[in-house]
């Protein structure tokens, strides 16, 4: 029988669909009987979605980067002056 502790150890693999068929059946049976583990898995999925939706910390130097890329791009479109200058 799968213990709660074992279920927690398998929880990430459950989220990622990495369980074997045997494990999947054992997990399903455990969850059917165990309210604590059901709550754990449900809230683990919530925390997964929280990380997905956590606002991005925008890289501050976007404009500088875009200018550098533009310069690079112009160099690349003028033959004989690109990487061969080195």
């Amino acid at each position: 029988m799968l213990k709660c502790k074992d279920l927690v150890a398998l929880s990430s693999d459950l989220l990622d669909g990495e369980l074997t068929l045997k494990q999947r059946i054992a997990v399903r049976m455990h969850l059917a009987m165990c309210v604590h583990c059901r709550r754990f898995i449900r809230q683990l999925r919530v925390s997964q979605r929280v990380i997905r939706q956590l606002p991005d910390q925008q890289a501050p130097e976007l404009e500088t980067l875009l200018r550098a890329m533009q310069a690079q791009q112009q160099r690349a479109s003028e033959p004989d002056q690109g990487d061969s200058s080195k």
Partner: peptide, 20 residues
């Protein structure tokens, strides 16, 4: 015995938006 000694507490919401 491998069972929860301190089970996960229930969060006030399951909504990521509400949490965030």
């Amino acid at each position: 015995d491998g069972h929860w000694a301190q089970a996960p507490s229930l969060w006030h919401t399951d909504s990521p938006e509400a949490l965030l």
